[in-house]
Every structure is written in structure tokens, then in C-alpha cells.
């Protein structure tokens, strides 16, 4: 069981998506938002072997529909288990591309200061670019309400027992959020350094946030998340004199896991380093045009 997030019972039992300011119009997703429609016909090209009881197998035509099917059929599938999520993520990515939007997936452990970072960023950047936010939490709209105070349109996804956002939830949330062209979308994932690593949401870049009040060996303890991230923000730098956190060591550990990773050190409280973060965002937005 995932002790980080404590989810236990049947998956994603009750995902709720709520646009702040339009709470009466929220949407429930069933079983993690997986909806499926399949045609009866099969345009699939599987290789079918039919095993006989003696263990030999030979090839023959498909059994008729009326024929009872005691034969065993081996389906050589080689299907990626994440395929459905990844396809939907690509669809989200196409949506962002068509609208010339930069979408960022912000991941961290709980308490790293994601929401504070976001609040300050929204206040500082809104004059420059239209910003939209998707907030992911297991329960409550507390974070979304904090974000709403900055006047940025925000949709809250409550994952219920779920420990991560997936591409289907983002797909649904986007319909409620209706972001404008050329905008900046921040997706604040569920506070969890483990599970969200596996789920592509269709983002343009993944930003992992750690703070100096955590251990500097976090990249080694939770390598999956650092392995998939593009940028690592080290937050709460104003507290560095009071804690036992070695910035150089944290960077070195993170680079061992992912040598492509870029770093920004900042404090969302004092504002130190924020300009570097905004420059990074501007660069990413410019890169969209190429």
C-alpha cells in the first residue's frame, strides 16, 4: 500500500472536479475517469495460437460465433499498461499546442510550498500573461480558494482516495476551465513524490519542488520523480541558515538521477530568486513558437 498518500480502497472512488465560483456545476468521474467504448468488431491484428490439451499448438481459422469455445487462445498483446493514459495525455498535449499554451505539472511532497509559490507567481505574472490553474488534492478546495483570491480562474480536482492526477482528469477539468489561447496553465498535482511520477498529463514541462526544510537526499529517496522532471525548484531558501540542508549536495544527488535537470533556488515568501523562475517561464513560452 502507498503509505505516502494513504489511499486504500477501490480506486479513485469519487473524483470530483469543481470550478471555483461555479461549485454547483461540478463533475464526478467514475473509476478514475476511465470511460470506454468498444465496437464489437475487431480490427486488431493479434497473433492467435490455439492450444490443444496435449500442449501442442497449431494454427487454424477463427471459430464460428456459434461454436462453443473450449479452445484456449493465446493473445500476444505486448500492450503498455499506461497506454490509455498516455494516449489521452498526448491528446491534452495537442490541445495545448493548438492553443499555444504552456502547461506545467507541479509536483512535490506535501508542504514544500507549491501553493505559496503559485500564489506569488500568479500575482506577479497576471499582467503579462493569462494564467489558469488546476488544483489537485485528495480532499477540500482550500488551495483552489487561495488561488481564486489572485483572480486566476481555477478548477479543483478532488481525487478522493486517489494519490495522483491522471490525463483523463485533466481532460475533463480543461472543459470546465476553458483556458484562453497563449495562456499559462499551472497544474498543481497531489502532494506526493511517488505516484504522480508515472502519469503523464500532457504537460509541456514537469517541475519538481523541494524545500530546504526537507532532507537534501530527497532526490535519492524518491528518484522516479526527479528522473521525470525538467526543472527542480529549491524553495524556502530564506530558511537555509536555520536548517541542515546542503544545497550543493541536493543538486548533485538530483543530477545523478537526471543529468538534464535544471535548478532554480528561490523563496516564495521573500521573493528572492523569483525573477529567475519568471525568466525560465518566459523562455519556455518562447520555445513553444519553435
Amino acid at each position: 500500500m502507498c503509505s505516502t498518500c494513504g489511499c486504500s480502497s477501490q480506486a479513485s472512488g469519487g473524483v470530483t472536479i469543481t470550478k471555483i465560483g461555479e461549485e454547483e456545476n461540478h463533475v464526478h468521474l467514475s473509476a478514475g475517469g476511465h470511460e470506454h467504448h468498444h465496437e464489437a468488431g475487431n480490427g486488431h491484428h493479434h497473433h492467435h495460437h490455439h492450444h490443444e490439451a496435449d500442449g501442442n499448438h497449431h494454427h487454424h481459422a477463427h471459430p464460428d460465433a456459434q461454436e462453443p469455445a473450449p479452445v484456449k487462445t493465446v493473445l500476444e498483446l505486448e500492450r503498455d499498461i499506461m497506454q490509455k493514459n498516455d494516449l489521452l495525455a498526448e491528446r491534452n498535449r495537442g490541445y495545448f499546442e493548438a492553443k499555444n499554451m504552456l502547461a506545467l505539472n507541479l509536483v512535490s511532497s506535501p508542504g514544500s510550498g507549491k501553493t505559496s509559490l503559485l500564489e506569488r507567481t500568479l500575482v506577479d505574472l497576471q499582467a503579462e500573461v493569462n494564467c489558469f490553474v488546476i488544483e489537485g488534492d485528495q480532499q477540500t478546495s482550500n488551495d483552489a480558494r487561495r488561488i481564486a483570491k489572485t483572480n486566476a480562474p481555477v478548477v479543483q480536482i478532488n481525487t478522493g482516495k486517489g494519490c495522483h492526477l491522471d490525463a483523463a482528469m485533466i481532460h475533463k477539468a480543461l472543459k470546465q476551465l476553458a483556458p484562453t489561447d497563449d495562456s499559462l496553465l499551472f497544474i498543481e498535482n497531489v502532494g506526493n513524490l511517488v505516484c504522480p511520477a508515472l502519469f503523464d498529463l500532457g504537460e509541456g514541462a514537469r517541475v519538481v519542488i523541494i524545500s530546504v526544510t526537507e532532507g537534501d537526499d530527497k532526490p535519492l529517496k524518491y528518484p522516479d520523480m526527479f528522473h521525470t522532471a525538467d526543472l527542480c525548484i529549491i524553495n524556502k531558501m530564506d530558511l537555509l541558515p536555520y536548517v541542515d540542508f546542503d544545497v550543493a549536495k541536493a543538486r548533485e544527488y538530483a543530477l545523478r538521477v537526471n543529468h538534464h535537470l535544471a535548478f532554480i533556488e528561490l523563496s516564495a515568501t521573500t521573493g528572492q530568486g523569483m525573477e529567475q523562475w519568471y525568466d525560465w517561464l518566459r523562455e519556455q513560452r518562447l520555445a513553444l513558437r519553435n
Partner: peptide, 22 residues
């Protein structure tokens, strides 16, 4: 507990394949 999501995806793939192959 993303492993649960993974298991549910596996169940979904198995059910889809069973249906397509009657």
C-alpha cells in the same frame, strides 16, 4: 497507491480483449 490504478488498467485491458475475442 498508483498500483491500484495499474491493476484497474490491467483489468480493463483483459476485459476488452476477452470481449473482442468472444
Amino acid at each position: 497507491m498508483h498500483e491500484l490504478s495499474i491493476v484497474l488498467s490491467i483489468v480493463e485491458i483483459a476485459e476488452e480483449q476477452a470481449r473482442q475475442n468472444a
